[in-house]
């Protein structure tokens, strides 16, 4: 039972990170129908910036929670800036092009950003300092680590905030309008460019949060982490039904649990096979994902 719970929370943690990244995919997809392949790199850049900031700040004498908060904040600012710039350079000029062109541009951006970090920093795995302090009340608990609890709560809070943002603010309304019909929203005076920028900034912010937390939890990073996390998160987004926020979270969790239990009970070699196998299996029975609505086309 203890082992089960350990796997359960491990999967939940992993799932939370997938969910945080998947939200970025799903929001961008919902608004401009683009698979933002470079999204994983934003997550990686977030993790790297946090590492760099934490290293610099700890030399300046920062430590403990203030270090996590400061490094996290810097990482968020930079990831958001990268996400914003990425959209302006690689996607905005392609808004009227066929659907595949921005996809290739995204793949190119992904390669570029990976190599940019590789060249400017290093190709080795770097140790990531454990920025998350241990909670004293979890000392007796063996099935869950402090960092896992923090990741879960941060994910819960940020998704809740995002849901409120989309539901109640002006910008949230504009986002939903643009997702439904870009041209009509534009005609009604919505600044579509700004909505798209905000979408990228929000997605990047969440990716950065995920990047900082999971890196601190795992303890090492390199330039390639974004690629794998990106593909997994995209899988999660599709699993849940792309374009749907609760879908992204649910998809992330399902994927996290699948991987965790498959690793724990079957074999760690086939972890990814289970993840993708599950995806194929679910899509065969629900072609639009778990929570996705299959929209009947008007003929």
């Amino acid at each position: 039972m203890e082992y089960f719970l350990e796997l359960f929370f491990g999967g939940l943690t992993r799932g939370s990170i997938y969910a945080l990244i998947a939200i970025g995919y799903t929001m961008v997809y919902g608004i401009i129908q683009l698979i933002n392949f470079a999204h994983g790199e934003i997550y990686m850049i977030g993790a790297f910036t946090a590492l760099i900031a934490a290293s610099a700040l700890s030399i300046e004498g920062f430590g403990g929670w203030s270090l996590l908060v400061l490094a996290g904040f810097i990482a968020i600012v930079y990831s958001a800036a990268y996400g914003f710039t990425l959209e302006k350079i690689a996607y905005k000029p392609l808004r009227k092009a066929s659907r595949l062109s921005p996809l290739i541009s995204a793949i190119g951006m992904s390669i570029f950003l990976q190599n940019y970090v590789l060249l400017a920093q290093t190709s080795d795995f770097l140790p990531f300092p454990p920025l998350i302090e241990e909670f004293s009340f979890l000392e007796q608990v063996t099935v869950m680590r402090s960092s896992e609890l923090l990741i879960l709560s941060v994910t819960a809070v940020s998704t809740a905030l995002l849901t409120l943002f989309i539901k109640f603010t002006r910008m949230g309304k504009a986002m939903r309008a643009v997702a439904q019909d870009k041209t009509m929203a534009m005609l009604l005076g919505v600044n579509v460019d700004r909505v798209i920028s905000v979408t990228f900034i929000i997605g990047s912010t969440l990716a950065a949060i995920g990047g900082v937390l999971i890196s601190s939890h795992i303890g090492q990073i390199n330039f390639y982490i974004g690629f794998i996390a990106g593909i997994k998160a995209f899988t999660a987004a599709v699993l849940g039904g792309i374009g749907s926020l609760p879908g992204a979270v649910l998809g992330g969790m399902v994927l996290g649990w699948t991987e965790s239990f498959a690793t724990g009970y079957v074999s760690s070699d086939y972890e990814d096979v289970f993840a993708f196998g599950l995806l194929v299996f679910i899509l065969i029975f629900r072609p639009a994902g778990i929570l996705g609505k299959s929209t009947a086309e008007k003929i």
């Binding site: 392609l94 541009s105 190119g108 951006m109 992904s110 390669i111 570029f112």
Partner: peptide, 12 residues
């Protein structure tokens, strides 16, 4: 690096 950048540039 150049490869990735050229993909973006050609597409743009």
């Amino acid at each position: 690096l150049v490869f990735g950048a050229s993909m973006v540039i050609i597409m743009v």
